[in-house]
Structures are given as structure tokens and as C-alpha cells.
Write a protein that binds this DNA or RNA. Structure first.
Length: 349
DNA sequence: AGCATTTGACCTCA
DNA sequence: TGAGGTCAAATGCT
């Protein structure tokens, strides 16, 4: 990440970097809590394996803090992220306070044709951010795309897949950053209300959630775990549908733990690998994940899932795969905090 | 056949 | 009046 003091790096790029760093930092806080709660300290703090992993993590967090401070924040979005230390994580809680209520209450007159529009969120505060990936743990369905004036890239419009079955009002707009098309300006409107209480929360996930909750108590930079509850709901929903068992997720989570928390100093890599492994085995077919541009968005990368003009099955961000859902939550626990936020760790290629 | 995406039309608000 | 947001028919993939 090369950034100079001359300011020759696009503000948005810096913003994205800061954003990522903040997320990584938050992820570390959570990891630390998880480690503590699971007694992983014991494993990694043996005399021969170096300092306790929590110490390593503390040191790493300090480095991150320094880096974030050095960057001083890029654009407004990044600044907001840094200041808030969280994104709209808690569904239905204060974390989403900024979101504008999508004004979908209208029933525009039928008749003559399609469309028309109430401008949900227009003029109202919305939750905006810059992310390198469109994946945010939620399943979105694209319902429109529009070329925006003075913008090189089209804006894509998404609504929560559960809008119809659960009346979830969440919506989001994505648009490649002008200066850095690989990053996206994502604006959320409305909060997720979708969930499926009928499913069971994987124990491992619950554990992680609990751990993170503990961390949250110690670090006010952490998101409320109401989000976890929400995310779990989503996961549950998918799991219920696909009949996936929680064993896979649980197993992988614990299996990867050793590597992840080793003091080898390759934690990041390991985390990445773990995530990838989980994703892979989870059968994730996401489209948003990875933010691979593609489709006609002109590099928008939005959803690509189903593929092309149709896509049977494919979904916006996450497939309706149970495991994927689990993954979504796991990543959420380890790196993502449900709701509209993005993962702490982006798994972009 | 079912479903998600595409895309042009239509509507609302500033 | 036009930019932005949404609808829904058309399209195409699984």
C-alpha cells in the first residue's frame, strides 16, 4: 500500500485503505476476544512458541492504529468509518441510526407501465461507505441500474432478497469509485428486518458470537452483537432451506483455529486461507463476493451470481446455500458483523 | 419451469 | 425540467 505525503494517491483509495485497516483492526479485537474465551492462549503461549497470541495481536493492533492514524482517513466515508468504528452492524439497533427509511411505503399508481419512483432515501441520511468488495453477508437482488450524471460508472440498485417474503426494506446502491473502480461506494437505505428464527444457531457460531460479545464489552469500537443475532437468522434461514448441517462450519472453524492463532506470524495468510477454505467447502457461489467486476455493469461487479441475464439460482451476494450462510455468518463473526457492513477481511483476489 | 438479471419506461422530487 | 430511483417485461441461464 503505497501512499505518499504528496497526496498523489486518490482520496478514495486512501479512504478505502483506511476503511480496510479499520476493519482489520476491529477483526483483531474480536479475534482477541475469541482467543481469550476459548483458552487458545494456552496453546500458543508455550515457552517455545513465542509470546501469547493476544500479545501479538495487541502489538499488531497497535501497528494498525498507527497506520490508520498515519493515513488520517481518506474521504468522508472512511472518516466516518473510522470515527464510528463500526458500520451499520446491528440490525434494528442504533448502529443503523443513520439509515434512511426507504420510502417504500408508497404505492405508486399502477397503470401505464413500469416504474416510477419514489426516491427512497433521497435527501435523507443513508449509510454510505467505500468497500473493496460488495460482499456484505446479505443476499441482494438487483432491481435496477442507472448511469449517473458525471459518473463514469453506472449505479446499481439492490434490494434485500427477503423483501418479498419477509418484507425486508433494506436496499443498497453500489457504484464503482471514480478514482478507483476496484472499490465501490456503497450506500445502504433501510435496515434489514429479515430473519428466520426457525433455524438453529450453530454452536460454534454462537460461541464466537459470545466471544465477540465479550470483546465488545471491552472495546467500544466493536459492534453490538444484535447484528450477530441477525446474521444468525439469515444463516439459519439458508441452512433451513438447504438442509445443511452445522458440522461443516463448526469443524472448519475449530480446525482452522490452530493455524489462525498460531504465533507463526502468518496469521493473516492463514486467516485468508481459512476463509477461502470455508468458503470453498461451503459451496459459496456468491456473486458479490470477490467483487469481480463483470457483467454489464461496466465493471460494477455487483452481482454476478446467476450469471448473465438470468440466473436461475444465483443470488446477489450470497447463495441460498446453507453452508454459505454459515460461512457468511462465520466470516461475520470473525470478520463481518452481519447486517450491511462488509467483512472485516476482504477476500478479494 | 423458475428465478435473477437486464433494460427501457415511467415517476417523483429538487 | 431533468437527474435519480423504481418497476416490470424481456431475456437467458440452470
Amino acid at each position: 500500500m503505497a501512499f505518499s505525503s504528496e497526496g498523489d494517491v486518490p482520496a478514495e483509495t486512501v479512504a478505502a485503505a483506511v476503511n480496510d485497516l479499520v476493519e482489520v483492526q476491529e477483526g483483531f479485537v474480536r479475534m482477541r476476544g475469541w482467543v481469550l474465551s476459548r483458552d487458545l492462549q494456552v496453546q500458543s503461549s508455550s515457552p517455545s512458541s513465542g509470546p501469547p497470541c493476544t500479545e501479538l495481536m495487541d502489538a499488531m493492533m497497535n501497528k494498525l492504529s498507527s497506520a490508520i492514524s498515519a493515513l488520517g482517513g481518506g474521504c468522508d466515508v472512511a472518516m466516518e468509518a473510522q470515527a464510528a468504528g463500526r458500520w451499520d452492524l446491528a440490525a434494528g439497533t442504533s448502529a443503523v441510526r443513520q439509515m434512511g427509511e426507504s420510502s417504500t411505503g408508497r404505492r405508486r399508481r399502477r397503470g401505464g407501465g413500469r416504474g416510477g419512483g419514489s426516491r427512497s432515501g433521497r435527501g435523507r441520511p443513508s449509510n454510505k461507505r467505500v468497500a473493496t468488495t460488495l460482499e456484505d453477508g446479505h443476499v441482494w437482488r438487483k432491481y435496477g441500474q442507472k448511469d449517473i450524471l458525471n459518473s463514469s460508472y453506472p449505479r446499481s440498485y439492490y434490494r434485500c432478497t427477503h423483501m418479498l417474503d419477509q418484507g425486508c426494506p433494506a436496499k443498497r446502491q453500489t457504484q464503482p469509485c471514480q478514482s478507483d473502480p476496484s472499490s465501490f461506494d456503497i450506500t445502504y437505505h433501510g435496515e434489514h428486518t429479515c430473519r428466520d428464527p426457525s433455524t438453529i444457531i450453530p454452536t460454534a457460531i454462537a460461541d464466537v458470537a459470545g466471544a465477540a460479545r465479550d470483546v465488545g464489552a471491552a472495546a467500544d469500537n466493536i459492534i453490538s452483537f444484535a447484528a450477530a443475532g441477525y446474521a444468525t437468522g439469515g444463516v439459519a434461514s439458508r441452512m433451513g432451506r438447504e438442509g445443511t448441517t452445522t458440522s461443516t462450519a463448526t469443524h472448519q472453524l475449530s480446525g482452522g483455529g490452530d493455524d489462525v492463532f498460531s504465533s507463526s506470524g502468518e496469521a493473516f495468510m492463514q486467516w485468508d486461507e481459512l476463509a477461502v477454505a470455508v468458503v470453498g467447502s461451503a459451496g459459496m457461489t456468491s456473486s458479490t463476493v470477490g467483487s469481480a467486476p463483470g457483467e454489464n455493469d461496466g465493471g460494477n461487479g455487483d452481482t454476478a451470481a446467476g450469471g448473465g441475464g438470468g440466473g436461475g439460482g444465483g443470488e446477489g451476494s450470497f447463495p441460498s446455500s446453507p453452508s454459505a450462510g454459515s460461512l457468511g455468518f462465520m466470516v461475520g463473526s470473525l470478520g463481518t458483523i452481519g447486517d450491511e457492513d462488509d467483512s472485516f477481511f476482504s477476500f478479494d483476489p
